[in-house]
């Protein structure tokens, strides 16, 4: 084996992995967090009975859902600068994840809202509640139960898909994995560790969803 190839992982590599983990967390918390907020509004608009709200929301959802995440990332990172808008790597990554997740999540939110029957709206309106009060106190708490399982599934999927941001050289977990394998050729060990770290990120979320679902469960 040539001298310049490092044959084991050292403490600096471990630190680099931790940095990658931290950056992936940053990317996902910011991107998916903002995406959730947007999804709430787009989902409400999509479920609206007013067409001037629901149609643009449907258009947004379809355009985003039906194009690849990687192309969206390229568009943000490479195409926007052509229009004179230079975007830092992290911002491009966060923006892409935000837009992408919001479209999928909006559709889940819409389905959750529409799963709540007209009866509940009638009862809320008959008591003098307005749209926002009905939504906040009656519909959303019940819709949450419908939204959480597929919603968390989506988030877990997107945490893993955030690895595509490695293509614009953002030093997140997957990019670190690539760097370390190029340096050590220990592909099996390095990618094994990277995969385990993704698991560490996603598994608690999965458990959280199960317990939230149990807590929100309405018998009958």
């Amino acid at each position: 084996m040539p001298q310049y190839v490092q044959d084991r992982l050292n403490i600096y590599d471990a630190l680099l992995l931790l940095q990658g983990l931290g950056n992936t967390v940053l990317l996902c918390v910011a991107g998916l967090g903002l995406g959730l907020v947007i999804a709430l509004f787009v989902g409400l608009a999509r479920a609206s009975r007013f067409r001037w709200l629901s149609w643009p929301a449907a258009f947004y959802i379809e355009v985003i859902r039906d194009s690849p995440l990687l192309m969206q990332l390229y568009l943000v990172f490479f195409a926007l600068p052509l229009m004179g808008l230079q975007v830092p790597i992290l911002v491009a990554g966060v923006a892409t994840l935000m837009v992408n997740s919001s479209a999928f999540m909006a559709e889940i939110v819409r389905a959750g809202i529409q799963a709540i029957g007209k009866d509940q709206w009638d009862a809320a309106r008959a008591l003098g509640m307005g749209y926002l009060q009905s939504m906040r106190y009656i519909v959303m708490p019940q819709a949450a139960r419908v939204i959480i399982p597929p919603g968390v599934g989506l988030l877990i999927g997107l945490i893993k898909d955030s690895s595509v941001v490695s293509v614009i050289s953002y030093i997140e977990l997957t990019r670190v994995g690539q760097i370390l394998t190029e340096k050590t050729f220990l592909s099996f060990q390095v990618f094994g560790i990277v995969a385990a770290l993704y698991f560490v990120l996603c598994y608690p979320l999965s458990r959280l969803a199960v317990s939230a679902e149990r807590r929100l469960k309405v018998s009958g």
């Binding site: 009866d119 008959a126 929100l216």
Partner: peptide, 17 residues
Amino acid sequence: VRAEVGMVFQSFNLFPH
């Protein structure tokens, strides 16, 4: 007006949560 008018429905329509 709705606040002044109570309504009771055939299917109860209680808030299950």
